[in-house]
Amino acid sequence: MSTRLETLGQNLQNVLGERIARLGTALGEATLEVAPANYLETARILRDHPDLRFEQLIDLTGVDYSTWGDGAWNGRRFAVVSHLTSVSKNWRLRLRVFADDDGYPVLPSLIGIWNSANWYEREAFDLYGILFEGHPDLRRILTDYGFVGHPFRKDFPISGHVEMRYDPEQRRVIYQPVTIEPRENTPRIIREEHYGDAGHG
């Protein structure tokens, strides 16, 4: 597996050259980062170049890095991460691109390169509010009709903003602000490395 990973890294270096913003391997997986300007071109090369041949877009997702490591993050907020698979070469690649504008994240759509991007990009738009330029049908997909907000952003509370109930007076279902108190049974804790190992208290 490791030699295969090295070959993949070498091929990526040779073919993409300048377009690579960052290329790393960790835990047996290769990760490639590109700038938004090179995103589409890189994707096309990844699919078509005979040394790479990533025929399949397996997964595409948005990520909101704003609370990473309890405030340790100082890069861009929104990223789109895709997982590519090559059936002929039998290797995988993670492709990450950060959106330039944190307030209004826009990235080009991959739909012309891999058709499976269609629903994945709709999902990333729905859950994170990332806009995809060139997507023909960027509707919400998972949330309710008429939903307001992007629920997977880190500043969106787990309980949501509104709840639904039947109102006997108006004799219809209405929305109202949530009445449940937010609670956290197990707090989120980040420990230093080797915490609790022998000799570390």
């Binding site: 997702t61 490591g69 309890d70 269609n118 629903w119 994945y120 197990t186 420990r191």
Partner: peptide, 24 residues
Amino acid sequence: YAISDGGNKPYRIKLRSPGFPHLA
């Protein structure tokens, strides 16, 4: 797809379900 920032909870979990692209 799991992202960890070293905490006791996942930072982000993405579940790639097979039915999603099939239904698309």
